[in-house]
Structure formats: C-alpha cells, structure tokens
Design a protein around this nucleic acid. Structure first.
Lengths: 228, 228
DNA sequence: CGTCCCTTGGTGACAAAGTCACTGAATCGC
DNA sequence: GCGATTCAGTGACTTTGTCACCAAGGGACG
C-alpha cells in the first residue's frame, strides 16, 4: 500500500497512463502496490525462475540479458523508469518460467504488483491493457532487432551503430566504457571488440585509451553504418 | 460470419478454449469472424507491414521467419492449427509494424478476426485473454530460445538436435529435407550445413543422399547434443 | 614510497562459421 | 532423350569466437 501523497505523486508521474484512469482504479493501484528499493547488481530474476510479482520501475534501470553456457552474454533490452519487464508480465500471465536474466544496473526504486492484480487489471482497466500491450510489442520488436543484428549484421557495423547511439545520450564524443562492457552489449567477446576497435582506430575513425573511446570522425562512422 | 454448423464445429474443435466460454461469446465469435483459404507460399505478412487482421489457423501451418539483407533467413516459429501469430496480435494491439515475415508453409484455412474485435474480446472474455497470453508467452520463449541457440550453441549441435527433433514427427530414421531447407531453419547457409553434415557422416552418425538424410546412430547423436 | 593485486587491454595461434565462385550430379518436364 | 532446374560438393578466403598468455595502468595499503 502506498499512502504518502508524495509517493503517490511520483508513481503517477512515472506512469502517465494512470492519469487517464478513473479515480477508483488509481485508488486500487495505490492500495495493492508495494514500494521496493533494490541495490545495484541485485539479481531480479534468473533463467528458469517463476516470477512472483511484476515490478514497475520508478527510478533506475534494469538490464535483461541472455547468458550462454560459455559465459558470454548479450543485453536484450533495458527497463527504464515508467516501464516494466514485459517478459515478466507474460510469465506471470501464462505461468511459464522466465527465459533470461534480469539485474539492477543502477539502484532501482519500483512498485511491485502481485500476479492476481496484474491479471485482474487486464480485465478491468482499458488503460492498463493498453500500457501492457504497448510494452509487450515494443520489447518484442527490440528482441527481434537483436536477433536480426546478431544473425545478419557484421560486428563492426553493429559496434559503430552502438557507439553512435551512445553519443546521443552521453556527453560529447567521449564514451566511457570498457571493451568487455561493449562485448556484453553486443553479445561478442572482449578480444573481438578490441580487434574491431583497433581496426576502426587505424582508419582514423576513433581513438581508444583505457576505459575511453573517443569518436573522431562521426560523419564517416554514420556513413559506414548505413552502407554494407 | 460463420453460419454453417459444420464449420462452427470445426472452429470449436480447433480452438478448445472456446468450449469454456459462454454461449453468447461463441455466438459473437461466429458472427464477427470470416473464413479464408490461403494457398501454399502465400505471403501473410511482410517486414514493416501493419497487420489488418488476426488469423486463427484451422488447418495447415504458417512459418514466421526473419530475412537478412544478404538473403539468409531463419525460422522463428510455426503457427499450427489452434494457434495464431501472436506477433500479429501484439502489432494489432499496439499499432506497430510487423518485425518479420509470415508465409503459408502449406495450404492454410483460417478464420480472421478484425483488430476491433481482438481488442474488445481482450476486455470482455477471460478465456480469450488466457488464450492470447499463453500464446504470447510461448512464442516469446521460442524466440528467446532461437536467440540463445544462434548466439551460444555450435552449429553441429543445433543441427543434430534439429534432426533428432524431426525424427519424432517424421517416419522412422529418414529425413526428407534439402541442405538449403536445413540452413533456413537454423539461420545458416547451405554450404556450411553441407560441411557439417559431411563431418557427421564421416563419423558414421548418418548418411546423406540427394534430398535425404538417414540417421544411423541415434543414441550417439543424442549423446552429442547433450555434451559439449 | 614501494609492493601487491586487480582491471583492462594486446597478441598470436587456432577453430568455427559465413561468403563467393564454380563444378558436377540428380531429377523433372516435355 | 534432352535441356533446364534443383541439389550438393569444393576450395579459397574473411569474419568471428576461443584460448592462453602477457603487459600496462591504477588503487589499496603497509
């Protein structure tokens, strides 16, 4: 239960779709939901687990990834404030095991919903349904995109595209990330990432130093991600 | 609209969950739904398309696959009688573009549902919701499984596992399938499949002739798919 | 300040998989 | 039977993953 008006306000702000719901539904949400805080690195769900509740993220981000037997891993998608892990939702609604791992990438504040309420609201609340379906579809597309990238795209292209994508979020042209972290994002291995980065460096497209990648020729990088 | 009692019977038999629904809901389904027949090879949905209706398969099977720029492709899952393509569902419910291709692998009879009804029934019918959620979750797991296989498993293992899986459906130990078809299933290329098959053949595990693969040592094959 | 240790990245050799160009063999339609 | 098409085999090469090992950078701490 969430009583504090400040916390209620934060919940409404993080999940705008709630504004479109009737007063009684919001009251129901406040009554049924619990606030939790999870530290960095906290494992939320592991492969094969059955999900006991659905977390709706208020602050922080979660990372959902696949882990191979050999230790390699790949990030499937992230769960940001205002979102929830729909794979969890689908597991709850169907009673199946979770097919991946989920971990707190930063400290996470979330409200958790019990499976019974998740199901009930699907029946009673149109906005809740819309919210969940939107998330399911967008995740599905992200995962399909990952599959496409892994199968059909060359690693140098994927790497360049990823670095360019980061640049929009990060400050300037400097990317603070280790080769290992990049490998985990793209589902590759550190050695290969190092090799590819060295190739790009020798073409003058970027510069690497310990823990830092500096994009030098952004227009050229953008060109190469588009072409073959 | 489906009036013919025979057709109504067939629909109920293909979708057992309908038996658990009230009389009025079944009447609604019969009233809103249209029967279609699609020939082999008919493209149902292409990448980037917006889905105009949801097909529920009565007979035949559809194949959903990803196609790369280079022409390579990979089968994601199949839609059998009693199922529907949930990616389509999710596209309909969220208004997003379809992120893959769907094609009739054999002649398909299906009933199609308009998006408005798909959405409405999500609100009004508990069994319909359960049916859709079950499908979404099972597909999600299949796609996650494909991703896992592609990223973390060796091709020879995947190939052996696939062949063994076929054996259960097919008759005896003979598998009638071209190398190209196997490549499409596993997201590889014909040449590589040929190479791997030759390797397995030289180990005495199977024998290949044009369009046919004969599994010789099934216990050994099963062993190898389990080990590293 | 120096030592230890952990993280990060570099390297070379090899294996697995994908690509390309070309060949030959089996099969089908007529 | 004959030509076209489908199916499979091959070799050379590239890309990617794996393994083992090394070296540099940077903290923790006495």
């Amino acid at each position: 239960m969430i009583g504090d008006p400040r916390q209620r306000r934060r919940l409404l702000d993080a999940f705008p779709f709630l504004h479109g719901t009737p007063e009684e539904f919001r009251a129901e949400v406040f009554a049924q939901v619990t606030l939790v805080r999870l530290p960095v690195g906290q494992l939320i769900c592991h492969d094969g687990a059955h999900c006991a509740q659905l977390p709706l993220v208020l602050t922080g981000t979660g990372r959902v990834y696949k882990l191979g037997e050999n230790g390699r891993e790949i990030t499937l998608y992230r769960v940001h404030p205002g979102e929830s892990c729909v794979v969890t939702t689908s597991c709850i609604l169907s009673g199946r095991a979770f097919p991946a791992f989920a971990v707190c990438e930063s400290a996470v504040e979330a409200v958790v919903v019990r499976p019974a309420e998740v199901r009930r609201w699907m029946a009673t609340s149109e906005p809740w349904r819309e919210y969940i379906f939107g998330l399911i579809a967008s995740r599905l597309q992200e995962v399909f995109g990952v599959l496409d990238a892994v199968l059909f795209q060359r690693l140098d292209q994927r790497l360049m595209a990823y670095l360019l994508g980061l640049r929009e979020t990060a400050s300037g042209r400097d990317i603070h990330m280790t080769h290992q972290a990049l490998a985990v994002e793209l589902g590759s291995s550190r050695e290969v990432i190092s090799r590819v980065l060295k190739g790009l460096e020798s073409q003058g497209l970027l510069r690497t130093t310990r823990g830092l990648i500096e994009l030098l020729d952004i227009p050229a990088l953008e060109l190469r991600t588009r072409e073959g």
